[in-house]
Amino acid sequence: MTVERIEKIFLGLTAAMLLVFLGALFYSAFGMGMHLPDREGEILPSEVRNTPPFDDPGVREVGDNQYEVVLIGAAWSFTPREIRVPAGAEVTFIATTTDVIHGVHIEGTRLNFMLIPGQISKVTSTFREPGEHLMICHEYCGAGHHLMYGRVIVE
């Protein structure tokens, strides 16, 4: 099998491009701490509202400039519907669902994760600027899916 010179150049450039992209991605993940959701434990969907921390959903300060948001998705609303956090604080979302799969996307941010029955989702991020963001359920969850949303207010 002979491969033409021009093709070798083309494929070499393709490989180089892909490697550069991968390098940038891994730097952003492991160098800058932009992580994806990981394994955070399981939960019984029917018992969510009786299982800590989901027995007390809401926002709380857990440390110096650190906040925790305990969030529950259920057809077709979020609890809490409105989340207030200060700008510049490190915010960790701990979330799950009581029924079907839902999604959470806080538009304008990289907070974008799934709620899967039986699984606990956890993501951390910082809202740098004050402002308001829609928090949208972005996974189909039944006939009222488009009604399911909330707000994040950064103060």
């Binding site: 494929l11 490989a15 992209f21 994806l36 959701p37 399981e42 799934m114 899967i116 956890k122």
Partner: peptide, 26 residues
């Protein structure tokens, strides 16, 4: 990628392999 319950490392492995399958399309 945005699912809970799957480790970040396995997601990264699938990510690299996905970049690999871009190659035959090029």
């Amino acid at each position: 990628y945005t699912d809970p319950g799957i480790s970040g490392g396995m997601k990264a492995l699938h990510g690299v392999l996905t970049f690999g399958v871009f190659f035959p399309s090029m």
